[in-house]
Structure formats: structure tokens, C-alpha cells
Design a protein around this nucleic acid. Structure first.
Length: 269
DNA sequence: CCCGTGCCCTGGCGGC
DNA sequence: TGCCGCCAGGGCACGG
């Protein structure tokens, strides 16, 4: 599942390949991906790709007249291909001015590509609902948000309206590094614990981004980029393996419906 | 406002 | 080997 480090890795790859190219046409094979706006999409072209940005787990293509706000969800990825046969999971094709095609590939079909106003996309859903990323988040603001929540801290950290960029992998890593149990009630955190979470979230996201994100299971990065952070995971996907700190066997539990890895000795409720 | 549930979707896997 | 049912989960709609 692409989280902030994987999305940033994708963004950098796309930037390298696409800046200053134009999209001259589009083909939509599965309309829900573009929110059934395939005709509006077709009417846009040509548009030059002037910038590719990222906010939390969203990618934003800045084009001549509009912005495309893209969420890869679980398994969305981009490929750049020439005229190879179209794979059954390639749902949207952008035909580029250099003869190549940017193809959106998504086995689960959960991803979305939304057409937004060029300058007001920040004021519209979904980006107007998006919280700040850990790197930009003032402690006071994060701590205040946790105080109003009776849910498990893991659930709150996954809420993109509270803090942006963390998904299931990096929230498990962050809470492990913070010695906080994922089921701890958010409103019972001390300010020091909130500070630890914020600090560790920043560090783990920065380190993972530097390694090109994680390439695990269903999520393999596109454009030939393979992340290496999966080799650095301390807790996620390590069920029944010894904790790196205390050798206690790591447990897999469910928190808020999510598979969650925890060291019952190191992480306190 | 807050919170829990169900939905979207398909490949992979366990069980028989 | 093949089939069936279940599981994975980010974000959102909906209802209490």
C-alpha cells in the first residue's frame, strides 16, 4: 500500500520522465477510476505537464489548465510504455507528446484520478480535508487532536484528517519506535508521548523515503524503482519473530479493523 | 462532532 | 488439481 514514502518515490520518478511533456489524449478503460469523468477528461487535451506535486498520499499533476489529484489507494501505480499490448489492469492511458503512454495500473481498482481546478484544488475535496504531514505538524496541534479522540492511537494516526502520510506500515513502525501500544486510547497520551510519535513519524518517513519506500507483497513500485525500506522494518510483517529490543515474540492483532504488529513487552498501553 | 460499520475490488491462499 | 470462501485495506458514505 503506497504511503508517503512510496508516493514520494513515485512522484520523483514521474517528475523525471514527464515534466514538460504534453498529454495529447486519454483512454479510459474503467470509468470509476476517473470518477466517470472520462468525457471531461477527453475534452481537456492537449495539456502540458508543468509540475508533479505530492500532499500526504496524494499525487497532483499540475497541467496547463487543470490539476489532476490522484490517489493510488492500495495498488495503484504508473507505467510508461510505448505500444505494448494493454494489460487488463491498465485502466487509464495518457498518450504523451513523445509517442509514449503513461498508464495507470490498479489491480484492485480502488485508486482515483480527479480533475480539479488549476488554482483552487487546495480548497476543494479531498485536499481541503487533508491534515498536515508530520514534518509540518506543530506538536501543540497534534496533541490537541489526540485529546479529542477516544479511539486507539493507531486509528487516530491513520486518520488523514488528523495527520497525513502514515498508513498501516509506517504507523506500526512509528508506534513501536515510540514504545506505545497501538490500542492505547488517544486521549490518554501524555504530551511527551505525542511528541515521541511525531518525532518518530518524521524520522521513519524520512528514512523510508531516502530508501525509495518499501516494496512488499502487493505493492511493487512502478518505473523500475524498488524500495529498500522493507529490509528495515522493525515490527511490521514480523509476526512470531523476536522483538529487536527484547526478543519477545511479536504479535499480530487487529486494531480498528487493521492488521497490527506489536511487541507486547516494549509497547505500553 | 464523534464513532463504528460496510462498501468498493481482485489475487492469493488455506482447506478439503 | 480444482474449487470455494475468506482476507487484505484507504477513504468515504451513512446511520446512531
Amino acid at each position: 500500500m503506497p504511503e508517503l514514502p512510496e508516493v514520494e518515490t513515485v512522484r520523483r520518478g514521474l517528475e523525471t520522465h514527464l515534466i514538460d511533456l504534453s498529454i495529447i489524449d486519454s483512454t479510459v478503460n474503467y470509468p470509476p477510476i476517473v470518477d466517470h469523468q472520462q468525457e471531461a477528461l477527453s475534452a481537456l487535451w492537449p495539456q502540458k505537464i508543468t509540475a508533479i506535486k505530492r500532499m500526504g498520499k496524494y499525487l497532483i499533476f499540475i497541467l496547463t489548465d487543470v490539476s489532476l489529484v490522484i490517489h493510488l489507494r492500495m495498488e495503484g501505480k504508473f507505467y510508461i510504455k510505448s505500444n505494448e499490448p494493454v494489460n487488463k489492469h491498465e485502466h487509464v492511458l495518457f498518450h504523451l507528446s513523445n509517442g509514449l503512454q503513461l498508464r495507470y495500473h490498479d489491480v484492485r481498482k480502488f485508486g482515483r484520478i480527479l480533475i480539479k481546478d488549476k488554482t483552487h484544488y487546495l480548497e476543494e475535496k479531498p485536499l481541503n480535508q487533508l491534515a498536515l504531514e508530520p514534518v509540518d505538524m506543530p506538536l501543540e496541534r497534534f496533541y490537541k487532536a489526540t485529546k479529542g479522540r477516544h479511539q486507539a492511537i493507531k486509528t487516530v494516526c491513520l486518520d488523514q484528517h488528523v495527520i497525513a502520510g502514515l498508513g498501516n506500515i509506517y504507523v506500526d513502525e512509528t508506534l513501536f519506535l515510540s514504545n506505545i501500544h497501538p490500542e492505547k486510547k488517544a486521549n490518554e497520551l501524555t504530551k511527551t508521548q505525542a511528541e515521541k510519535i511525531l518525532k518518530n513519524a518524521k524520522e521513519v518517513l524520512a528514512f523510508a523515503t531516502a530508501l525509495g519506500g518499501s516494496t512488499i507483497r502487493s505493492y511493487q513500485s512502478s518505473l523500475g524503482i524498488h524500495g529498500r525500506f522493507q529490509n528495515e522494518l522493525r515490527i511490521h510483517m514480523r509476526q512470531n519473530q523476536p522483538c529487536v529490543n527484547c526478543q519477545t515474540l511479536i504479535q499480530k492483532i487487529r486494531v480498528g479493523g487493521r492488521g497490527t504488529y506489536v511487541c507486547p513487552n516494549c509497547q505500553k498501553k
